[in-house]
């Protein structure tokens, strides 16, 4: 084995004529936190499910912990943990019963089961609440419990499919801390998200769009590689109107909306706020409340990439 926890080779999944995952290639190093980013419907879940051995690829193959998803899905299942996008625990069972069930499924019993149960409870901060019904827990805590249960058998690789979606920002933070603890213990973590800012918590990431990988690398490398122009954040009362107005302006390279804010990647000659401010004024842009030069985010990268492909 090459030291890679996962090797993906031309992996493809079609549902009828629709290509959900389109011949993708990537690899995940042992012990890293690997981010899987993309908008809704990009094909993240489909890819993860193929890697877990529960969805047969249409063509191509992938090796997880050295086993082929095509020919040895059962061996893969013994070496991975998985947290599905939908809530994966039983609402009508107590916290303890959920833990014991999944422990039993992975063959834990006796002292080992008690030891792991205590670990899960502790990491989800639920010690002392063993008999509470799982359905009564708030979203963030539930997700921590689900993560603990997904790794109850201490698998070398764990797949987390949008574990933080619909969770408040503070819980998301503490969830990521838990992921880092796991990673520190040597577990390879593959995590999907559509919160692009969460990529900052990952080592390597891939960006997926419409079944294809559009970019890969570390978050900072991606930013350096794709955004070479100065980026300004413009706050305005009427963002859509402004966007239509300056879309075709000579100083505009790339433009994208974030609520009532707008990110403008400008030609290199406009490097300060006052330079771009006067250019906008000359072009007749109105109602501008504020302009700042910003460090581009991964969001800018992503929008730039997806836009480029569309053109």
């Amino acid at each position: 084995m090459s030291g890679n926890a996962i090797e993906v080779k031309n992996l493809t999944k079609k549902f009828g004529k629709f290509v959900s995952v389109d011949s993708i290639n990537f690899s995940v190093k042992q012990g890293e936190i690997f981010g899987f980013l993309g908008a809704n419907g990009a094909g993240k879940s489909t890819t993860i499910r193929m890697l877990c051995g529960i969805l047969e690829p249409t063509s191509g193959d992938a090796f997880v912990a050295g086993y082929s998803v095509k020919t040895e899905p059962d061996s893969i299942k013994r070496n991975i943990g998985y947290m599905s996008q939908r809530f994966s625990l039983y609402d009508d069972l107590s916290i303890e019963e959920n833990i014991e069930f999944f422990g039993g499924v992975y063959g834990l019993e006796g002292k080992k089961l008690i030891e792991r149960k205590d670990w899960v409870l502790e990491s989800a901060q639920l010690t002392g609440k063993e008999t509470t019904l799982t359905g009564l827990l708030p979203g963030g805590i539930k997700q921590r419990l689900a993560l603990g249960v997904a790794v109850i058998h201490q698998p070398p690789i764990v797949f987390l499919d949008e574990p933080t979606s619909g969770v408040d920002p503070i819980s998301r933070r503490s969830f990521w801390e838990l992921i880092h603890i796991l990673s520190g213990e040597g577990c390879t973590v593959v995590v999907t998200t559509h919160y692009l800012e969460e990529a900052e918590y990952c080592g390597n990431i891939i960006l997926m769009d419409a079944g294809k990988i559009v970019a890969e690398g570390t978050s900072s490398a991606l930013k350096a590689q794709y955004i070479q122009h100065p980026v300004f954040e413009i706050e305005t009362d009427s963002p859509v109107e402004l966007m239509e107005k300056i879309e075709k302006a000579p100083f505009t390279v790339e433009i994208s909306l974030f609520g009532n804010k707008m990110h403008l990647a400008a030609q290199d000659t406009f490097s300060t706020v006052s330079e771009i401010g006067s250019a906008l004024e000359k072009f007749g842009a109105k109602n501008i409340l504020r302009i700042d030069r910003i460090v581009p985010t991964l969001e800018d990268v992503f929008i730039a990439l997806v836009d480029k492909k569309g053109k």
Binding site: K77, S88, D91
Partner: peptide
Amino acid sequence: EKGTIEQINVSPI
């Protein structure tokens, strides 16, 4: 319906 089947499928059961 609840999707918990997925968690079972991915286990060695």
